[in-house]
Design a protein around this nucleic acid. Structure first.
Lengths: 197, 197
DNA sequence: TTGACAACTTACCAAGTGGTAAGTGGAGGG
DNA sequence: CCCTCCACTTACCACTTGGTAAGTTGTCAA
């Protein structure tokens, strides 16, 4: 456990993030998160006041991370930026599932709970980036958005399914699927690198 | 073993299914499900013995429904079958979100809970169907599976995002996205209808 | 030394959870 | 008429949850 000179607050948020991602809001308990941190649940309440607030801060941190992942993506043209972004997302979603799980859980619980959309800045930034692409300039915003969202969906869903697929078909078979999945993604994004006609 | 349509047992499962889909396993309470049925929670325990069993039956019913959705799909060739299946899935996922939510929740909770995979028969059937396609006969099983899973992922994720997207961009904007999404799916599936080269 | 503050802890509670035990009321068969 | 099953209810319990109140410890500045 990295108990760095990080402020306890952010340390708490990080651990809480992991637990919420894994178990979901209701299944996760303050005591459980606190245990994992080596403190009592009152330490959490001391900082955040309530469970909901803690969760909101977790989502807010997630939102920042998502936005950051686009803004910091390397590349000169919007096309290559988008390409590397998707490939990076695919990689991260499989290795560091946490955020993907949080997003999925947030989407599922959106009906019952929040009036607050942690994914909005992220999606807006993605949309803006896609809008700048020259070769798609005649496409409508909806078409661009759907094209993006289709890839995100495919990536996220595959990442979420990781455990299940491993459980059903075995780890080795999953590794093959993983390679294939990423190869197909690369193929689908190939035209982003070609020169415009 | 099969109950009548009006059997209380199946009625209970149906309602429980809806609540579990909307709230998730932990957030859903027996009392809540029972309330919605106009009975006490002990009525549920009378039939199912425990909450977990009730949930398992919900998942089992889901599994049946999923499998059924492939087996009953219309079409003569595997190609057209797959095509109409995907279009049907896209339609259903948006109108009747319940099952999609259940699937997503099952995938997310797979880490912590079950050793039981409700989606397996469904995916196996889909894989078998895809395997029969002539024009893809030289593709590996992994390639076929990923191709399928990519579309499922895109569809499911979009369906799950429904509430959020409506919340973020408004209902009218979402309707446009919905149309566009389905149009893009149709376009992606177009080659399934052409004659083999 | 003192006081203020931060980062906690122990002790406790009301509300809600899944689950058990025993009982009720009606329908149907003998 | 009785008996038995069936679908269900009331009453209750052990346990967990988020949350409150008050105290403890360590640090640092005046």
């Amino acid at each position: 456990m990295d108990q760095h000179a990080d402020s306890p607050r952010t340390r708490y948020i990080t651990t809480a993030s992991a637990v919420f991602a894994q178990k979901g809001y209701h299944a996760a308990g303050l005591a459980g998160i606190a245990d994992q941190l080596g403190v009592t649940k009152q330490a959490l309440l001391h900082f955040f006041g309530s469970k909901v607030v803690l969760y909101e801060e977790v989502l807010s941190a997630l939102s920042d991370r998502l936005l950051c992942s686009i803004e910091n993506v390397e590349g000169t043209t919007p096309e290559t930026k988008l390409r590397t972004f998707f490939l990076q997302l695919s990689e991260d979603a499989l290795c560091k599932v946490e955020d993907t799980q949080l997003v999925a859980r947030a989407l599922l619980d959106a009906q019952t709970t929040s009036e607050n959309w942690p994914m909005k800045p992220f999606l807006d930034a993605l949309g803006a980036l896609a809008h700048k692409m020259k070769r798609w300039s005649k496409a409508s915003d909806a078409e661009l958005f759907c094209w993006i969202y289709q890839h995100i969906g495919s990536i996220q869903h595959f990442a979420i399914s990781q455990t299940t697929l491993k459980g059903m078909y075995g780890k080795e078979a999953f590794d093959v699927l993983k390679e294939t999945h990423q190869a197909q993604l690369r193929a689908a994004l190939a035209d982003l690198e070609e020169d415009p006609v």
